[in-house]
Amino acid sequence: MSEKKIRVLVAKPGLDGHDRGAKVVARALRDAGMEVIYTGLHQTPEQVAEAALQEDVDVVGLSILSGAHLTLVPRVRELLQERGMGEVLLLAGGIIPEEDGAVLKEKGAADAIFTPGASLEGIVHYIREKIAVS
């Protein structure tokens, strides 16, 4: 039985340039054996969804530290659905107040939110648990 690698798109939608967290997470996921694609900075939601489709990923991780999460996360989810990628696991990380995180999860925009202090191991574990690898 050959193991298929989990494919993850780490993306920086919006205008903020804080990429320390996104890069550290990208590297941790790669070290954990996943296939990681990093979009780079200042992506529009359309660019993120398009990259997710092109790269045929299982997981999209959005890193947002500008406060625009309530606009950007639902928009990316919507665009993924339009592309027939409604099943993609969508994670968001950054400075996202608990209240806003709850709203995003309730709406179904994000499957999970990782905020400051979240551990790399916790993120890896969460993804592995959610994605059935055959």
Binding site: L15, H42, G67, A68, T71
Partner: peptide, 22 residues
């Protein structure tokens, strides 16, 4: 805020959700 930092006016589509935020 980020749109000002990146040289976009507040009515630019890329500014949506970012105005006055950080």
């Amino acid at each position: 805020d980020m749109p000002t930092i990146m040289g976009y006016d507040s009515d630019h589509p890329r500014s949506a959700g970012e105005i006055g935020r950080c």
